[in-house]
Design a binder for these strands. Sequence first.
DNA 1: AATGAATGAGCATTCATTCAT
DNA 2: CATGAATGAATGCTCATTCAT
Lengths: 235, 235, 235, 235
Amino acid sequence: MSALQRVAPRRAKSQLRITELLRAAREVFSEHGFQHATTALIAERAGVSEATVFTYFAGKRELCIQVIKDWYDEISTEVEREMPHLQGVYARLSFVIRHHLITLLADGSGMCALVLGEGRATGPDLADVITECKRRYTAPLMDCLAQGQKQGEIRTDVPLRLMRELIYGSMEHVLWDSITNQKRPAIDKTAEQLTALIWSAITPPNASLEALTRFRDEVRQALQQSLQAASPASA
Amino acid sequence: MSALQRVAPRRAKSQLRITELLRAAREVFSEHGFQHATTALIAERAGVSEATVFTYFAGKRELCIQVIKDWYDEISTEVEREMPHLQGVYARLSFVIRHHLITLLADGSGMCALVLGEGRATGPDLADVITECKRRYTAPLMDCLAQGQKQGEIRTDVPLRLMRELIYGSMEHVLWDSITNQKRPAIDKTAEQLTALIWSAITPPNASLEALTRFRDEVRQALQQSLQAASPASA
Amino acid sequence: MSALQRVAPRRAKSQLRITELLRAAREVFSEHGFQHATTALIAERAGVSEATVFTYFAGKRELCIQVIKDWYDEISTEVEREMPHLQGVYARLSFVIRHHLITLLADGSGMCALVLGEGRATGPDLADVITECKRRYTAPLMDCLAQGQKQGEIRTDVPLRLMRELIYGSMEHVLWDSITNQKRPAIDKTAEQLTALIWSAITPPNASLEALTRFRDEVRQALQQSLQAASPASA
Amino acid sequence: MSALQRVAPRRAKSQLRITELLRAAREVFSEHGFQHATTALIAERAGVSEATVFTYFAGKRELCIQVIKDWYDEISTEVEREMPHLQGVYARLSFVIRHHLITLLADGSGMCALVLGEGRATGPDLADVITECKRRYTAPLMDCLAQGQKQGEIRTDVPLRLMRELIYGSMEHVLWDSITNQKRPAIDKTAEQLTALIWSAITPPNASLEALTRFRDEVRQALQQSLQAASPASA
DNA sequence: AATGAATGAGCATTCATTCAT
DNA sequence: CATGAATGAATGCTCATTCAT
């Protein structure tokens, strides 16, 4: 038991080291991206030697994976915690969109750039991890939409997978634009408009409305072609 | 001085080399991304010495930029060529989505991964070039949507910029998924469903059923009168 | 960040490495000059890997600067140590000239060629460092000459700067000749003759023979009186 | 004979090329020094292809040697032309010093830096050539000084070689200082003062004057030591 | 004679990772 | 456990020089 006592504090100390390393790593990876982050800088920020990084993590990539996983854990938990308190598909979609935009822009675009950018450029390992994390992160909303499909609120002629790509893909684009352009968009306004667009997309289409709109479109085309044919000289 | 091509080769043989180098470079950059592509490999693939690469291009980055520009030129030209032959916003949107998915998945995911990935991760140089190229590439559809807004076919309560992000963002997501999962989706089906989703999103949500119905009735009436006038005997 | 030593080694082993690296670097830079010296060769001579060179020094140039500074430190310290023990401008000038010639020819012309050569050709970085080092190295003699000017021993119609150039310029020439011709001159003889030349150059040209003669006579008279007073019996 | 006629113009053309190349080379070597000058730039400035440079010169070094030789030819010829018109050792020394300073600072320090700097840093080939050129360049003055020795105007207790180093060494130093400090000195004043210094150095020393000065110096030393010994507390 | 074209050989620098202590 | 110390391996870029045409 006295042996255990000696072990316990060590474990605690180890946990501290790990926590500190992850904190420093998140900082550095956020600031520089995976490629340009260096283990040396991470170690320095964590206040340990470079070798110690490798005592706790198998390598740079593994460390980065852990950073990403932890971060996704956090935001996934937030979403999972909030979702039950919201009623209705629309409210939940609206929340997710707003929450996503706010969260990813909050930390100075750091983790955002990391997850969006390095999730692609780097080897397949990171991409796979991110894919897996995203699955859990998007699950609450996807479940909600599935429910919505059963209740007729959400269209069923399109697979949920595609809706997920519509929702998160468009948000990624919005985020990336705001990162590269270095300007913060009006988040609330953007979230509201994006929600409106997406809601229109995923709710069951009004069949007759669509048909009528398409009809008008075709008539207009035919009319224009007719006019062009009637006065070829002016073409 | 170092930023420019050191010599300005003008003869046919030079053109061949340039073409060959660009081909090899596109290959290598596609396979490995910018960071992990090496000038040595590009030279080998082109069948020249490494020094020759630098005879024709100021550096690795400039070579990559040229590769990306050329590729965007190709696909932009294709879109610009086809758009005029299509009538109506819906037809054009439908075409662009299908064409985009087909094109980006066609070359074995090569340029797709390059453009999607490097458009984000690396230094601002490449990202800026890609942003500029994308502007031209998306312009035809954006112009079309702007026209649609004027004619009441496309909703005006949401900025075009956001629609662009909805359209291309969701497609990027779809593409990236198919790349990382290494499985080709059913392109036609996906394009069709994505078009449906997006069309629902960007058409006016409150388009008056009544107004459209009235329009259809008038057209029907006019049509009938026309038919009667053309063949009064059969009436 | 890259301009600084990446780590700050503090232990004895580190000091050994640094010393060893500086020794090897002095060797290599001496033999090949800055441009043609390679970090690879320095590392090999120091018995370490090339990467280790960069663990302790930010780069080739910084290493060379350190080598030059250290060397100048050594010879400057020597001069500064000896000067106080010498009395009179002539003795000091004589010492500096002889010491300079001996020192610079001692190590097989190595550092001499480096300092003389690189002090000029390459980028301004090295030249500036050398200029700064030279300032300290020549300071003791310059101070001495300034004193001499106040006491009328050194001419005042010519700026000290020009005298410095006369002294060190002619010595550089002598040294360079002996280096390029690969033959050791008779240092003692040369030093003696050079001192004679320079002494003639920097002493007041119009020093009044008369005044000096009077001074000598007065001293002689005083001396005789002193001797007489000391031993009146012998008078 | 008709064959000769065809050859003659060719030769003339060749001469033109060579002249043009040398002109361009002098320009480039002056601006960038030997190491940083590129054959590519020289060719461009000469309006020919890079390969043509090697048609006329064995290599970069040979081209540079020719440039230096030609330049020394010019300034040597100038000196040789003027010397006979000047009477007396002093006048000739004065002329050479002034002419040297003016010439080497005239062309924007270009050839000056080349000859002074690259004559050292680069391989022994260049240095040898420069040494040889210098010999001819300094010959007129050296001959003049030798004459002066015979006529008792110039001291004979010091070899001429050493006087040459004194004269040209101090001027090199002056020139190099003005190059690195980027500021033009008052050439006339500097030349005048330098001439005064050197003249004092190389004319026969006034033996009694020197002896007296040295005597006074020694008396002062002894006096100071005596005073210090008398009041050790104040030391 | 002139050159377009091509290249061989050379080099500083970075950094994740290992290991003895 | 922690780390000081060391490094292997990798890579973009320069440029004088060659040679077939």
